[in-house]
Design a protein around this nucleic acid. Structure first.
Length: 485
RNA sequence: GGUCCCAUCGUCUAGUGGUCUAGGACAUUGGCCUCUCACGCCAGCAACACGGGUUCGAACCCCGUUGGGAUCACCA
């Protein structure tokens, strides 16, 4: 049984189990990483279930044994967890439910809705060629349909699609779509190796798991009439369908590697906050008036199927980055500190939890678009061996600057308490003494302390660094300038 | 190619017959603030794909054209 694989989260006891409560699912196939398109679909399903106080199921569609891998399963689970998408049931694995599919196949055979087919690959290929020659679509011609063949070793099972008539899909976002049965053929529901095919496995899973709301990419629209026909043959009620427009790359083609980052872990590695990716992905194709910034809680409160747009959207990295900056600004310092410690350690900064880190992060919060950028800009707080950038040397380390730096040093010696206010006064005294502009003294000092011409405010930097470090860095800079001129 | 879907600034979108000389956000341009860089603030540029209808009136409804996308497996 699959019971051992079921991981139930108990943090949503509020879920009511009435028959009309919403049940959604996310059914990735483990053939690669969780990419942003899939993540968005998962998000919509999860958000809708939470919004409606329903249930969200995770199901791994691994009936393609050749392409499915454990690494992919792990990557998908990790991606979902990082995004904060928690499933109430599952993950279920289709590969462990073969008996269930087989019993449903038998039902269909017993009721005359499906049949065994022993046509060879070559025969089918010929049929297609023939159809194409006749100006039709490549299709199976129904050779075995009325033969009443018994089960044999290499037989597949096909579903009988009516030769005439139409199937209608009433979609929440696409509205009314009519499909002609003449466009379909008797598709395979069970492969010769006994595994179910996608269209069949999906509907028996959705039926047996009581999924009543299917939100998925609109690349599935053309599969839907087949699935509806299957529901009807099984005499089961249809779920509510919501086919959401796809996410496209910059050139308006289907998103792929050549469009840059695709998997959610790549975004994590880029220093994107999960709440920013969530916000961006949901907002791409869904809207709530003019609102751009959403916390997860707001998303759960405000998400609805009726505000999903009908046109495909293009993935825009710049907007993601901008939203990320907004989420960084809105984050608690303590949260950012927790995320930053490993990143800082990775680049050789020995960071640990504490007020020093908190102050550092505070100065960087407003000027960092990603966590990676933040870590990079935090370097100088942790390394005494400041590396001066060439451009900074050129611009700020002039012979004229050394007397100013020395004058400031004198003032710093006399400060009793090293706080921003006192430091500002010290700078102003130098300005008054020498008659130069503030930036003529501030910039060389900034380079002396950070190695760069751009940094957080000079007073806050000095306060955080403390008297000893600040003064020794300035002394070193003066020596450096003297040596090089 | 058949079938299906889609169409508002470069991008994401608001808009559901009159309040639209079309609003917001990202990007971009100029300015303010200022110790630098940011943040913030102010201002600017920028769109209803095209053609027919329906209507007193159309971004909104209908038809066509064009353009784009999806899909046509013993993949999902």
């Amino acid at each position: 049984m699959v019971a051992t694989m079921i991981k139930v989260h108990h943090n949503h006891e509020k879920v009511n189990l009435m028959s009309d409560s919403i049940i959604t699912r996310f059914p990735p196939s483990p053939t690669g990483y969780l990419h942003v398109g899939g993540a968005r679909t998962a998000l919509f399903n999860w958000l809708y279930a939470r919004h409606m106080n329903g249930k969200f199921i995770l199901r791994i569609e691994d009936t393609d044994t050749k392409r499915s891998t454990q690494e992919s399963v792990d990557a998908i689970l990790q991606g979902l967890e990082w995004l904060g998408i928690e499933w109430d049931e599952g993950p279920y694995f289709q590969s462990e439910r073969i008996d269930i599919y087989k019993s449903y196949v038998q039902k269909l055979i017993d009721t005359g809705h499906a049949y065994y087919c022993t046509c060879s690959e070559q025969e089918i290929e010929d049929m297609r060629q023939e159809a194409v020659k006749a100006g039709k679509n490549p299709k199976y011609n129904g050779k075995c349909r009325e033969k009443g063949l018994p089960k044999t070793d290499n037989a597949v099972v096909r579903f009988k699609v009516p030769y005439t008539g139409t199937t209608v899909l009433n979609d929440v976002v696409k509205k009314h779509i009519v499909f002609q049965h003449t466009e379909l053929d008797d598709f395979i529901i069970q492969r010769s190796d006994g595994m179910p095919t996608y269209n069949f496995a999906v509907i028996v899973d959705d039926i047996t798991m009581h999924v009543n709301t299917v939100i998925r990419g609109d690349d599935h629209v053309s599969n839907t009439p087949k699935q509806i026909l299957l529901y009807n043959a099984l005499n089961e009620p249809l779920p509510t369908y919501a086919h959401v427009p796809m996410v496209l790359g910059k050139d308006k083609t289907r998103l792929s590697k050549r469009h840059g980052a695709m998997s959610v872990t790549e975004f994590k590695d880029m220093g994107i906050l999960p709440e920013a990716l969530v916000n961006y992905l949901v907002r791409l194709g869904w809207s709530h008036g003019d609102q751009e910034f959403f916390t997860k809680q707001e998303l759960i409160e405000k998400f609805s199927l009726k505000n999903i747009g009908s046109a495909a959207g293009i993935f825009d990295h710049q907007k993601l980055i901008a939203l990320n900056a907004a989420h960084i600004q809105a984050s608690d310092i303590s949260y950012l500190c927790r995320l930053m410690i490993p990143l800082l350690n990775q680049i050789g900064c020995n960071a640990e939890q504490g007020t020093f880190l908190e102050k550092v992060i505070f100065t960087l919060q407003k000027r960092s678009k990603t966590l990676i950028e933040m870590a990079d800009n935090a370097r100088f707080y942790y390394t005494d061996a400041v590396v001066y950038e060439d451009q900074a040397i050129q611009k700020c380390f002039t012979p004229a600057s050394t007397p100013l730096m020395a004058a400031l040093l004198e003032q710093l010696k006399q400060i009793s308490e090293f706080n921003e206010k006192n430091l500002e006064s010290a700078f102003h005294r130098v300005v008054e003494q020498t008659g130069v502009k503030m930036n003529q003294i501030a910039q060389p000092i900034r380079v002396a302390l950070t190695g760069k011409t751009a940094s957080p405010g000079i007073f806050e930097i000095i306060e955080i660094l403390g008297q000893d470090k600040a003064m020794s860095r300035i002394e070193k800079a003066i020596m450096y300038i003297n040596e090089h001129h």
